[in-house]
């Protein structure tokens, strides 16, 4: 009985200890979708890797236009520093706690803001800095 139990436990242990795949173990599609995170994949914890593998499943069902949009967003995200990611997550959580109409208003306002002349945006950023807020030093985000 004890021998049987040990064998079974060892099997379970091996199952539990099996980590999510390394970058080289991913298939071609997974590597293509997750390419923006290639550099940090090996540093990710198992739950993170699992989440991204689940993301690939969802990605597969999206339209090509949506996939391109997401790839662009993933590249932007991958280029952020840990502080910028933390700040973005916090801001996003704040937005998700708003009423749906408020969230829609923010999306519309972003489009209006994005259409402003670059000089006006710089002025607004400088104004924010002058007020000494605790915003991250991300002004304009990457590539802006």
């Amino acid at each position: 009985m004890a021998r049987f139990a040990l064998t079974l436990a060892a099997t379970l242990w091996l199952g539990a200890a099996a980590a999510e795949p390394t970058w080289s173990e991913l298939d071609a599609e997974q590597r293509t979708v997750l390419a923006p995170f290639a550099g940090e994949w090996e540093r990710m914890e198992d739950p993170q890797r699992r989440r991204w593998l689940g993301f690939v499943e969802r990605y597969r069902d999206m339209s090509p236009a949506r996939q391109r949009q997401l790839q662009e967003k993933m590249r932007t995200w991958a280029a952020l520093t840990p502080e910028q990611r933390l700040a973005a997550r916090r801001k996003y959580q704040e937005i998700t706690q708003m009423a749906p109409e408020e969230r829609d208003a923010i999306r519309k306002k972003w489009q209006e803001y994005d259409a402003l002349p670059e000089e006006e945006k710089r002025r607004l950023r400088a104004e924010r800095r002058a007020r000494g807020t605790s915003e991250p030093p991300a002004d304009g985000g990457p590539g802006r």
Binding site: W77, A88, Y113, R129, G140
Partner: peptide
Amino acid sequence: ALLIDDLPVEALLDSGFQSWL
């Protein structure tokens, strides 16, 4: 969720946008 959302990442980090809002 943030990546799948329509709102660009820049909108969450651009301090000019926060000031404008």
